[in-house]
């Protein structure tokens, strides 16, 4: 892991009227890191992620994503990130190849480049023979792998994964995490939100949000030590309980 911050956030605040969704968030994510962004529903994860993806502008604070300013350079940010939603977001009525062509096309990749990369990718995933099948005919695990491959097809610096494993069986989830590790190994920074606390253990570092603030942020092992917990699940419960009392 190199010490280059690809996401730099300082005192990021987002207000909706009187409601503060994000309260002075400060963190950095480094190149090739797998950063877990945890928090209960309504803790402000989605709001923060939208700002980092250039969809929403922050109320105040300094935010740089992939070296670009989140106030003025959202277009540049969008070009340098990948995104995968929890719904896998491939077009069900398009074939594998058509999906890849479409998404690669909107990121401005050239035709010859797309063709070559598609062949490599599908051979690696052992999906070359299925390339002209409609997405809706594929099993869930394949869809998920494809969705991730499509999200990093244009080789972004950072990929944002919004609860990428919801509704997927444990074996498929494991295989999916192997893909994430591989992407990180190749230098892609992975910013992932998840509901599964066992997945938090796979991350290099995690931050836990409670009520719009980052309540804890460290490596999973340090967090467990600090909160004297067996698992990340215990860490999470303790933090949430502390908040309620």
């Amino acid at each position: 892991m190199e010490n280059v911050p690809v996401i730099h956030v300082e005192n990021m605040t987002k207000k909706f009227g009187d409601f503060t969704a994000n309260d002075k968030l400060t963190f950095e994510v480094f190149k090739g890191e797998i950063f877990g962004f945890l928090g209960a529903n309504g803790a402000g994860k989605t709001t923060a992620m939208k700002i980092l993806c250039g969809l929403s502008s922050p109320t105040s604070g300094t935010i740089r994503v992939a070296g670009y300013d989140a106030y003025t350079q959202t277009e540049m940010i969008k070009k340098h990130i990948g995104y995968m939603s929890q719904k896998f977001s491939l077009y069900e009525d398009l074939t594998i190849v058509e999906n890849i062509n479409f998404y690669a096309g909107i990121y401005g990749l050239k035709k010859t480049e797309i063709k070559e990369k598609t062949q490599n990718l599908l051979t690696k995933l052992q999906l070359w023979d299925e390339k002209d099948k409609l997405i809706k005919s594929l099993p869930l695990g394949w869809k998920q792998k494809l969705a991730f491959s499509v999200a990093v097809f244009h080789e972004p610096g950072i990929v944002f994964l919004d609860e990428p494993t919801s509704g997927v069986d444990p074996i498929t989830r494991r295989q999916f995490w192997e893909m994430i590790y591989e992407a990180a190994y190749h230098g892609i920074t992975v910013f992932v939100t998840t509901h599964y606390m066992d997945e938090a253990e796979y991350c290099d570092r995690v931050s836990i949000m409670v009520d719009g603030r980052i309540e804890a942020m460290d490596t999973p092992s340090e967090l467990k030590k600090k909160y004297q917990a067996e698992t990340m699940n215990d860490v999470f419960t303790k933090l949430a309980r502390k908040q309620n009392n």
Binding site: K78, K87, F88, S89, Y103, A151
Partner: peptide, 12 residues
């Protein structure tokens, strides 16, 4: 289908 989210995050 959730594809709108992906389109919005894209450079389009």
């Amino acid at each position: 289908m959730g594809t709108m989210e992906v389109l919005l995050v894209s450079p389009l």
